[in-house]
Amino acid sequence: MVKPSPHSRPAPAPVPGVVRDTAPRGAALAGKPTLETVWAWLSAIPDPEIPAISLTDLGIIRDVAWQGNSLVVTITPTYSGCPATSIINLDIEMALHGHGIEKLELKRQLSPPWTTEWMTDTGRAKLEAYGIAPPRPAGGPQHCPHCKSTAVERISQFGSTPCKAQWRCTECREPFDYFKCI
């Protein structure tokens, strides 16, 4: 099992639109899938604690690149102590090895720190459908994910996972999780 060194130097920030592989995009070499294919595989891996959304929905995969015959996946942690981090690494390894990737390196990147702004719109919609209010810069949920009432109040800044807070709806009386905006 390839484990990321917990002390590795942070990788440089990914440059949007720049493909590090020398092979042209979309042209798969034998045994070396395109980066699009790898991203598609990664988008099928659910978050271990909130399985309604995928790792790519969450926005924690910062970069995927080939370095020679080795695939390098750069991941940024949501919260520094999040216990899901090691499970996420394991899930990525299992999935990519399952797709035939032999040489894999997982890199941890701390800066820029993960922000809920990187969560995809699809991810936000999936969260809401699952009953978790998606993050908002305003600092609180737009409405109750169950009955859509705007009559909501905070119970606690912290919830069942580091990334969530506890709120409740005073209309339908249901408590719900709110994905904290950081």
Binding site: G81, P83, S156, G159
Partner: peptide, 18 residues
Amino acid sequence: EEDIALANVALDLIGQTQ
């Protein structure tokens, strides 16, 4: 709620420790 909040704060601090 306080139990959860304290555990979350502790978790963040231990993560930062690492």
